[in-house]
């Protein structure tokens, strides 16, 4: 949109996707795909809609969208595999490489 529309009406729903917030990160969550238990807690709690959910049926693990992930770490904190002492961790926070 070049011109300001009447009433500042925005005709492009979801256009914030044009703005990549991934550059905000100082830490990043990293997935070990084989350890994902498809619980989708990371997807449920992500404030940035930056997780593509897992599919338990086809055993497809979650995917993190680094274009938008701000590195808050909620996914790592709430991951059920991480919370279960008998399972290997699926997500961990590592410093962002610059």
């Amino acid at each position: 949109m070049d011109k300001i529309t009447l009433g500042a009406v925005n005709t492009e729903p979801g256009s914030s996707l044009n703005y990549k917030t991934g550059s905000w990160r100082t830490m990043k969550p990293v997935l070990t795909p084989e350890n994902c238990i498809f619980c989708n807690m990371c997807w449920e709690f992500c404030p940035d809609s930056a997780i593509e959910p897992a599919d338990p049926k086809s055993k497809k693990p979650i995917r993190i969208d680094y274009d938008y992930c701000k590195g808050c770490g909620i996914c790592v904190e709430e991951c059920l595999a991480n919370k279960n002492a008998n399972l290997p961790n699926a997500l961990e926070m590592v410093p962002e490489e610059k």
């Binding site: 979801g14 914030s16 996707l17 044009n18 703005y19 990549k20 917030t21 905000w24 990160r25 997807w43 449920e44 709690f45 992500c46 404030p47 940035d48 809609s49 930056a50 997780i51 593509e52 959910p53 969208d65 274009d67 938008y68 701000k70 590195g71 808050c72 770490g73 909620i74």
Partner: peptide, 26 residues
């Protein structure tokens, strides 16, 4: 992002914003 997400990425909420998660759930 799930394909049917109605509150999409790219918003400028702070990292870890509790409200953004709440809006998604609603």
């Amino acid at each position: 992002m799930a394909s049917d997400e109605l509150f999409v990425s790219g918003h400028r909420g702070c990292a870890g914003c509790g409200m953004a998660t709440a809006v998604r759930m609603v």
